[in-house]
Design a protein around this nucleic acid. Structure first.
Length: 378
DNA sequence: CAGACGTGGCC
DNA sequence: TGGCCAAGTCT
């Protein structure tokens, strides 16, 4: 069923377009949420919000956004910050390359464009971390330019309005939806129209059980008419996360704990964490792989007991983590990417959630737990 | 193009 | 409870 459908849609007629524009915008004017990035049209504020909102829910973003904007109210202040501070402000939000790319891009804006986000499609699109959606959002919302901003909501709403079975996970589909969107955007309120489309997708035209009865454009919706709204949009299934065993070390020396920065590329790239190795199922001693690896780095470990076990799911990996404590007996030269840190200072570091969980487990014995649920490990 | 890239919430 | 989803971009 579904899958491919590259029929070109007949252009909607003008009366239809006018009706949909008015109904959607009237609905938006009455129902738009009062979100922190809607206080004004400062392009920098819009930009930051759009980056945070990538693949992330509004409710999750709000507190991060408020904190981020109070720390870095202007492009100049963000550009002047250390990357560590920026990452710390992003801690727990995920997709950390967004923060690095934003930081890189805002420095570019300060150096090249005098601290003003350029009002130009080519220039905005060249900024790191700004793809076709985000460029369209910034330009339409902040600068009132009539350009498409097609995100997951817009894919869903348009696929339903026009009963389009194009697979929205294919990049070729984006062009088609952008051209369709372009026909609909009114010259006078492009930013509001794009936001209204997304707002409708978030509040009414939801992925599961859409509230069609409350939809301002239900009469214009072909999927609703045909009763196929639940089947749209068509998207191919992602692959389930690959299970991996990992060992984290809670390695102590005097009253300090060893932190290690992860390699710059890849999963949690460049983030601080506990010493980590991939472990093998047949490993005789818990933490043996960790001890062996550190031996080659010139640090002799005495292993203690297993502090606990935890499971953490990423988009494409599922980590089954064994947290092992150990003590540093002797140390030659500590690798550049490592630091001994007082327990109370660990919170100064930006740790991804999987490491936060492990640290909490190590510091708070009641949280310690053993055994993965269901023993579903492999 | 397909896969990498985090996290939390919902049913 | 496991699987899917959420205002995508980069390689």
């Amino acid at each position: 069923m579904g899958g491919k459908d590259h029929r070109s849609i007949q252009a909607p007629d003008d009366d239809w377009i006018q009706a949909v524009r008015k109904k959607l915008l009237d609905w938006y004017d009455q129902n738009r949420r009062d979100l922190p990035w809607r206080k004004n049209k400062d392009p920098y504020r819009i930009w930051v919000s759009e980056i945070m909102l990538q693949q992330t829910r509004v409710d999750t973003v709000i507190p991060y956004y408020e904190r981020f904007m109070s720390l870095f109210p202007t492009p100049g202040e963000l550009a002047a910050a250390d990357e560590e501070e920026v990452i710390k402000a992003w801690e727990g939000l995920g997709y950390y390359s967004r923060a690095r790319n934003l930081h890189t891009a805002v420095k570019e804006v300060v150096e090249t464009y005098g601290g003003v986000v350029p009002d130009d499609p080519e220039a905005v699109s060249r900024l790191k971390g700004v793809g076709p959606y985000t460029a369209g959002a910034i330009l339409s919302i902040a600068y009132n330019r009539p350009v498409p901003a097609v995100d997951g909501n817009v894919f869903r709403v348009l696929s339903r309005w026009f009963a389009l079975r194009d697979d929205v996970t294919r990049s070729s589909t984006r062009r088609k939806f952008e051209e369709l969107d372009r026909l609909l955007i009114p010259e006078d309120r492009p930013g509001d129209f794009n936001q209204a489309l997304m707002e409708l997708g978030a509040l009414i035209c939801t992925p599961v059980s859409p509230a069609c009865e409350g939809c301002p454009v239900q009469g214009e919706c072909r999927a609703r008419h045909e009763g196929i709204q639940a089947e749209l949009p068509v998207k191919t299934r992602g692959k389930p996360p690959v299970p991996v065993r990992m060992t984290f070390g809670w390695i102590m020396k005097d009253s300090r704990v060893l932190l290690q920065r992860r390699p710059p590329e890849g999963l949690l790239g460049g983030m601080w964490g506990l010493p980590t190795v991939e472990s093998l199922p047949e490993e005789p001693v818990p933490g043996g792989a960790l001890r062996d690896q550190w031996a080659t780095l010139g640090l002799k470990l005495e292993l203690g007991t297993v502090v606990g076990e935890l499971e953490h799911v990423f988009s494409h990996r599922r980590w089954f983590v064994t947290l092992v404590e150990g003590w540093c007996l002797s140390e030659e030269n500590l690798p550049e990417n490592c630091r001994w840190v007082e327990e109370k200072d660990i919170e100064q570091y930006a740790l991804p959630n999987v490491y936060r969980k492990a640290v909490r487990m190590a510091l708070d014995p009641p949280l310690r737990s053993h055994g993965f649920r269901q023993g579903r490990l492999f």
